[in-house]
Amino acid sequence: MGSVEISHISREFIRDDGDRVIALSDITLSIADDEFVSFVGPSGCGKTTLLRIIAGLDHANAGEVRVDGSLITGPGQKVGMVFQEYSLFPWRSVLSNVAFGLQMRGISKEERYAVARKYISLVGLSQFEHSYPHELSGGMKQRVAIARALATDPDILLMDEPFGALDAQTRNHMQCELLDIWETKKKTILFVTHSCDEAVFLSDRIVVLSPRPGIVRDIINIPISRPRDRTDKEFIDLRRHLLEMIEEEERKEERIKCKSGNL
């Protein structure tokens, strides 16, 4: 199980110079079990903030998040996260990074390493289980981070621009791997991305956010059956539609910045 109910979430930050930034304003959203939902929008529209609130790492000023009906007050067992920046523990090997969550749950070394190995092979890194993070490429690090988040078998996986730093080819490959995992493991995935192509390729639904204050501007259903073909007409049309919407958001953002004299 892994449904997420986001109701009337607002979050504002006080910046160092005393200005208030409304990162999220009255976000309400309902995500079903096993759904793949992407969040897109110009940077600064509150995507990371929203994910952190769902994760329990940050607290909203108003509103609440429920996972399978229970209120989120802090990080819990049901929710796993892959961060935007590299988050592997550099002092632990790949194997011990992936086994970390199970270690925290008090599972014996033998057992947790066996489970960790399974997930490491799932992301295709069995040869590197004894390597340290600094010995891996960016793409490999993110794959280990995904394996680490999966190893504790969370019902909900939050992913914050996990492939943002990867080259196009690795990225496409990782997207297919992620869909495989999603289909076999039956998880709810909340996925933040900058890329319209990625969002259309992966998601059941795409939530378009609009900045300052962060609100839900639109929700787009992607009815195309998987595996999806990027050259398919329906795919291209949806991608263009999404792109236009985001470009419009970005232009709006520019204008606001000009007016307020930031540029």
Binding site: P75, G80, F83, E85, S87, G101, M104, R148, T152
Partner: peptide, 13 residues
Amino acid sequence: RIFVEAGRMLGCT
């Protein structure tokens, strides 16, 4: 901070 948050998400609380 990312290490602490990653730890918390993995049950190190």
